[in-house]
Design a protein around this nucleic acid. Structure first.
Lengths: 210, 210
DNA sequence: GTACAATCTGTACGGTGTGCAGAGTTAATC
DNA sequence: GATTAACTCTGCACACCGTACAGATTGTAC
């Protein structure tokens, strides 16, 4: 068997995801191009393809790291299960909204990285503590993920629009055609968005633990 | 005041969104480029910029039409509120999963078009029938939208991965580190996905109407 | 020393969104 | 009826994108 390793190794999957996370932190998700990631890692664009088959795979790795960074710490500990879940929800929301586009990234690929696995396990732990076990546990934890990621993605999308246009659109709702919507819009304008987010989460969890 | 209208008008916002919807129906969301939409409308790419400020605006219009096409018919009628909501959920899911990427599109921009307005109103009607009114109604309808869109987007993302790799990933979960996840994965593999989707929706609605 | 395998670079292709200048058409004014 | 101004749409161009292909470079095993 002839030589195996090869030349000087300046790259690794971790170096690449580190570079990508750096770009994400300052510049948002739209700054994540293969060329920019490669430049940040000090390498030619094509070098990345030695470690990832395509851009989607890089993004999947980045997403997994994001989940691990924001969700898992809050779920670890010995606080009561409901507090852990709420803390996790708040941390994930804050972490993802800080990077415009990160939420959309998370929803664009399956969540099956190692950190996502750990996230699922910790969430199942919390639900078991709440008395949800057996087949329902899988369904319940999936429902919680759906709510969290959906809420964050929708909020990120709204946040992308400029607030002036948003306020104008809300004020322009014709109350004679959409009476309930007009009334709701007025109510919603007074909301704290975190409060709304946790309100929905609490109701969902209420339904899940029955 | 000199001349106003202009030259022969071959385009309109509606013609453009029609062309885009046509491309979406056969070709998926990734076929939606400004150049392709323009070609489908028989026009040079830049002509679109007379009617939409940028690509995101075109996508927003397309999304609004999708909502109107799939969600609103099922919410209209005199079936009991819970049946209407369930029928809408099923229709939206089927309609969006038929176009890979459409769900991600919907979550990438605020839902504030005319059809989305009508959707919100119809959903509030159903919730009012269920006894949810006042400030809670706005929160509840938002929570339902979050769940629906989140679930569909997550399912679309999973659907994008090839099933073989997905099954392999599920089987490779180390049960000693992630016992609950491993057990859940086995359960989830036996699911009908629509059933899981409606299960979560029902629990959420249970929590909302208390 | 030689052969081989792995890593990284150079170059290139086809595609993207969209800005700028101008051609063409229409309608209102004089 | 001629002029003028407003508007729509085209041609061209720019900078950027993901990534395929070929090859230079490097290190290990024989």
């Amino acid at each position: 068997m002839p030589g195996r390793p090869g030349p000087r190794r300046t790259l690794s999957a971790e170096v690449i995801t580190d570079a990508a996370l750096g770009l994400l932190d300052d510049g948002g998700a739209e700054a994540l191009s293969m060329r920019r990631i490669a430049a940040a890692a000090g390498v030619a664009p094509n070098a990345l393809y030695t470690y990832f088959p395509d851009k989607a795979a890089v993004l999947r790795a980045v997403v997994d790291r994001l989940v691990g960074r924001h969700a898992n710490p809050a779920l670890t500990g010995d606080a009561p299960w409901r507090d852990r879940v709420r803390a996790m929800a708040v941390a994930v929301r804050a972490g993802l909204l800080a990077h415009p586009g990160a939420a959309a990234m998370i929803m664009s690929a399956p969540l099956d990285g190692p950190e996502a696995l750990r996230f699922g396990e910790l969430l199942l732990d919390a639900l078991a503590e709440a008395g949800v076990t057996g087949p329902d546990a899988a369904r319940a934890s999936y429902a919680v993920m759906v709510y969290l990621l959906g809420a964050i993605a929708l909020e990120a999308a709204d946040q992308g629009a400029d607030p002036g246009a948003r306020r104008a659109a809300a004020a322009a709702i014709p109350a004679e055609h959409f009476p309930r919507t007009a009334a709701s819009a007025a109510v919603i304008a007074t909301y704290n968005t975190v409060e709304q987010y946790l309100w929905g989460l609490d109701r969902l969890v209420d339904g899940l633990v029955r």
